[in-house]
Structures are given as structure tokens and as C-alpha cells.
Design a protein around this nucleic acid. Structure first.
Lengths: 350, 350
DNA sequence: TTGAAAGCGCTACCAG
DNA sequence: CTGGTAGCGCTTTCAA
């Protein structure tokens, strides 16, 4: 069913039907009524492809995320999606799995669809394809990994300050031996966290040790990392995790080893995903206002789409330390430095 | 930059450029090379709107979910999205928030975009708009809430059997007083779970009590439900939750009340989301093979898109009980029936 | 207030 | 092997 079919049934021209469909008010009331009647019983759906072809822009925005299995990304995706719908946009989604090629492919696809804007919520480095994006003048908002540049809105989070808050808090609780669990590949925001950790730790004469897992491993990878820590004999009084997902996996593995948290070792996350409040013990972490980040990104895109001039806005969100149960004062230094079995530790699980 | 621009620069016709872009092999090697060279330095991106307008079908599929904040939906979304990309489809996403109007709006929008197929992963009832969908011949796969019908693939999960497994397992552990936490609105799959619970419980002479929360409330709602249970004085030996999210919220609230799980009360979930293994105690639940569900849905859509004849396939996935730490034998019946404070119970938390 | 007609950028058919 | 051309379904002047 096309505009023309409706036109025939209503004995008017396509132009008139188009006007009715689009709510243009220069249509005689009786004509409009007649068309509307036909429309109702006709199962007509305007072809949006054709429409955006002629008007030259589509009402679709694209959202690209690194990992749909990490609630962090899903949360900001969710915020952007909600705003988009509320403003009459459709949303195309792309998941990169932290893969540069998939990211490029997604960007190209979205350019091809002539999207009205793109939100990039990723951890990996920006690919060359990005410049093509800028070239065609599509407004774009980037979370955290953006570089300064014309036509790009950069919405950032102060990862450095966040990690600083964690380390200084732990230091204030007497911790001087910390393990860090990070991601093995070079992801920009997580690298900032790691180097901030190392720097602040050094400044406070904290003995550190660095452990890594790859992104794909997720929660299971975190468990493996904890096993590595245990095997290493390093026996830290605090384990700093690059994000909540990993911290949750770590918590679980520590429990299996009968290692008391925070009695024997404190654990911290990063992101404050909803679940971090629901673990046991609940997780000390850094709050990132994911919904605000999403809203801000959408606003930037909308502004760009409207004005056709991307301001290149820069905005930085600040961290907030959320102290919960997974952290506490460092255990007395005369405790055994070796991780003991549950029986020896006398840890009691319900 | 359009086909025509490239054509001019390469001194060929649009047809030829089109052939090169689409990899048609009836192009002279040297001509192709020349075109390719222009293409490379031209930042040309084929307009997919125009393309799908002329070919009459788009390479986009739509996925509609009820709640992006529930990992269950995200997981099957993720599976479908991966399959779609791997097969060269873009994906449009719609989140309904369990709202019928949003669902209809999403469906209409996707019809408008002339998507190649739609996957419906929702809990709410199907709207009238669905018939429009069938009317225009778009292949469609529905998870769980589908009704029999031509042109619709129904991928189901045996919720009834799953709930039966839970209740019978609990009965075998001596439980005879159970509370159920469900969702207040009538969502089809969750209603099946609830009625199955009530029926199997009755058959086993189990004393039951029914509590409800609304979907929006999420984890916090679950906590409120537990407070209701505590206040009610019912003091069940098992709490059956309609899904894992709610069970996780319940676990947390029980811990705050100092109520031992599973010592004082057993708790069960449903879905087996990844986090259910990482709570403390870890959650006894029903495994739903979300990735397989997603793959199956995509296959059904793909088949429909190819053959233009939707088989109306029916497929039912079977449940699998996953017993973890949150359930155990019912406490002795001479225990106090009132929930006691933590001090009285002597529950020890690390 | 209405209709005719010119494209939007692309593919596909038909000639050459 | 290549080019010309007729649309895909819609919006948008421009006339009537």
C-alpha cells in the first residue's frame, strides 16, 4: 500500500494524501476527513526510507557500544535510547565486542543509513573510519575516549580522580599492599584507571602488583585473576578492580577460597552498576552517573542535528566514592601474609 | 558524494560505479581499478536508504524488548544482534518498558522502515498493531507470548515445567510453607509461572501466600516485597521469585534483616542470568538458554525473509533446574515461626 | 485548496 | 563490458 493507492481510493492526488499524513493544515476539512477514512482502513504505513531519501536526513540515530553484556554500557545505552524515542528518533544499535573492525563496520553502516547522529559508548581506540564520519557532517558524541576535534562532542568522566579517591580512601584505612585487576588490552579509559592507581599508590608508598585479564573473559576471567593473586603469594590487603563486573567475579572467587572480605582483604569496583549494591558483601565503588552521561550525549547529538553545526562540546563528569561493605581497615600487619584456608581462618559462611 | 560524482571523476557511467561498489564481476579489470581508485579517495558511502528503496527490502531487522535493564532481555537481544550482524543485517532496537503503546509505536516504526524481520522479546500482551505486521508480510519471531498464527514463528519456553521443577524440588526438601513474589500486572509468561506455582503447591499441600510488585520497581521492589513478607508474619520456609532480578533483590533484603538463607528460608529465582551465580548465597534457579533462544529466533526470521513464506514454526525450549546455595532443607518445624532478629538467630556475617 | 511533476540516490533492465 | 534510463515511494515547489 503506497501513497498512490490511498490517493486513488480517496479520489485525491498523492500530494494531498501526503499532506494529510504529515499533518499539513492547508487541507480542506472534508477532504482530510475522506482521506483519513481511507487511511484508517487501509493498513498504510509510510515508507520511511523513501521519506528520508527525499528530505535528505533520517530520523534515526545510531548507538555503538563495546559490550552489551556489561550493564554499564547497557545503562547508558538505555538512557540514550529513551531520549531518542521520546524525541521521535529510531535507534540503530551496534555492538563492537571491543573490536576495531566491528566498530568501523558499524560506523560505515550508520553513515550509509544517513543517521542523524551517532553516540559512541566504547572503550576501544577510535578507528580511522571516524574521520569519514566527521567528513560527512554527522553529529557525533563520544563518551570518554574522544579526542578534541571539530564536530565532536566529548562527554567524559574523570577516571583519574575516581581512582585517586579509591586509593586514598584505602590508604586512609591503613592499606599498603594492593593488587590491581585490569584488562589486558589497551583500552583508553581503563588505562587511565590503571596508571592513576599506580601513580597514587606509589605516592603513598603502597606496594602494588598488577594482574590482567582479557575483556572477553568477563566474570570468569575475574575469578581466574583472583586465583593468580592467591597463587602469587602476594597476599594484598586490598584488591582494586578496574570495574564492577570484575569486582563481582573477584568477590565470588574469594568467597570460594574462604577469604574474608573485607576482614582479610578489601575489594573495590568501578562504575557502580546496579548489582554492585546487591552483592554480598556489597561493593565499594565509584559512581558514574550513567543516565546523565546518556542524556548529555543525546542532547549533544540533537543540538548538532538541529543546527548542523557541531559545537565540539566538552563536558566532564565527576566521580563519587560509594563506600559499602567490601572495604574496611587493613588487617593487622602481624596477620599471616599467606592466604590461609577457610578452616584456618575460621571464616564462617551462613 | 553520490554515485554520479564518483562516476564523473572516474569517467564512467553510474551503472559501472554501481557494479563496482556491489562487486558485480562483469567489469573490465582496468575499469574497475580506475573506479576503485576514485572510490578510495572519495569518502563515498552508498546511501542505503536509496538502495533498499529500489530493491524493495532493507537489510535491517528489528528487535523489540520489554526491559533493557533486565539482563534476561539483554542476553537474548545480544544473541540476536550478533547473528544479525554476522549475516549482514543492521539492527533497529525498541524498548517498550512493558508499555503497550510503546510496543505499537515500535512496530509501526519498523514497518515504516520496511525491516526484513522483527524479533519480539517481550512479556506484555501482543497489541492489535501486530496484525498490521502480519498484513504487510514481514517475518516475525516471538518469544514466549506468541499465539498460534500464520506467518509467525513462536519460540517458547516451558515456564510451567520450570516452575514445577522448583516447587517439587522444594517439596522434596521438606518445604510446606512458601511465599511467591510475582509481578502485579498481567504478563503472560510470568502468569504461567505463578499459576503453575499455585497449582503444584496445592497438589503438594503446601501453604502459600502471594506477593506482588510492579515491573518498574525492579530490585528495590523486591526488597519491599520481602519487607511485606516479614511484616505479614507468614514466615515461609521458601520464597519463590518470578525471576532472578527479584530473587537477587530479595536476597539482599533478607540479609539486611539478618535472615539466614537458606538456613531460615530458601530462595529461588528464574532465568539463570549470569549474576545469579555470583550472589551470596548463589541462587538456585531455572536455566533458560537465552543464547539458543536468540539464535532460534534469528534463524526463523532469516528463513522467513529468504523464502518470503513464514512457516509459522513452533519451538519449545525446556527448563533445567540449577541448584545452588540459596536453597536447602526446610528448617525444623519447631523453629519459631516468627522471623527473629539477627542477634537472636545468631547469624554471622563476615 | 489541490494537483502535476521534478527529483532524492540507487539498482536493474535493455541496448549497444 | 558499458551506458542510458525507468522507476522505488515519497516530499516539495510551482501552477492552477
Amino acid at each position: 500500500m503506497r501513497l498512490e493507492d490511498v490517493a486513488k481510493l480517496a479520489n485525491v492526488s498523492v500530494s494531498t494524501v501526503s499532506r494529510v499524513v504529515n499533518g499539513v493544515d492547508t487541507v480542506n476539512a472534508s477532504t482530510r476527513k475522506r482521506v483519513l477514512k481511507v487511511l484508517e482502513k487501509s493498513n498504510y504505513h509510510p515508507n520511511l526510507q523513501a521519506r528520508s531519501l527525499v528530505v535528505g536526513r533520517s530520523s534515526t540515530i545510531g548507538i555503538i557500544v563495546s559490550n552489551l553484556l556489561n550493564p554499564f554500557f547497557v545503562d547508558v545505552f538505555h538512557a540514550i535510547e529513551g531520549d531518542a524515542r521520546a524525541n521521535g528518533f529510531e535507534v540503530l544499535v551496534g555492538n563492537t565486542n571491543y573490536d576495531a573492525d566491528q566498530l568501523s563496520a558499524n560506523i560505515r553502516m550508520m553513515i550509509g543509513r544517513r543517521v542523524a547522529g551517532i553516540a559512541l559508548v566504547i572503550s576501544e581506540a577510535l578507528p580511522p573510519a571516524l574521520s569519514e564520519l566527521v567528513g560527512v557532517g554527522i553529529p557525533i558524541a563520544i563518551y570518554d575516549v574522544g579526542t578534541q576535534g571539530k564536530g565532536i562532542a566529548n562527554i567524559r568522566f574523570d577516571n583519574r580522580k575516581g581512582m585517586t579517591q579509591i586509593v586514598e580512601y584505602l590508604c586512609s584505612m591503613g592499606h599498603r599492599r594492593m593488587a590491581y585487576i585490569g584488562l589486558s588490552s589497551a583500552l583508553l579509559p581503563t588505562d587511565v584507571r590503571r596508571s592513576a592507581f599506580l601513580e597514587i599508590a606509589a605516592r603513598n608508598s603502597v606496594e602494588t602488583r598488577d594482574f590482567k585479564i582479557s575483556f572477553q573473559e568477563g566474570l570468569e576471567g575475574a575469578r581466574a585473576a583472583v586465583r593468580d593473586i592467591v597463587k602469587s603469594g602476594f597476599d594484598p590487603t586490598a584488591i582494586i578492580c578496574v570495574n564492577d563486573m570484575i569486582a563481582i567475579g573477584a568477590l565470588r572467587e574469594l568467597r570460594d577460597h574462604g577469604i574474608d572480605v573485607p576482614g582479610h582483604v578489601s575489594v573495590t569496583g568501578f562504575d557502580n552498576i546496579e548489582f554492585s549494591e546487591f552483592t554480598s558483601p556489597s561493593l565499594t565503588t565509584i559512581q558514574i552517573p550513567r543516565d546523565k552521561v546518556g542524556h548529555r550525549m543525546f542532547d549533544a547529538i540533537l543540538a548538532g542535528a538541529k543546527s548542523r553545526t557541531n559545537a565540539g562540546e566538552e563536558y566532564m563528569f565527576s566521580p563519587e566514592l560509594v563506600v559499602r561493605e567490601s572495604t574496611g581497615v587493613a588487617r593487622a600487619s602481624n596477620d599471616s601474609r599467606r592466604t590461609r584456608s577457610r578452616a584456618l581462618l575460621g571464616v564462617i559462611r551462613p
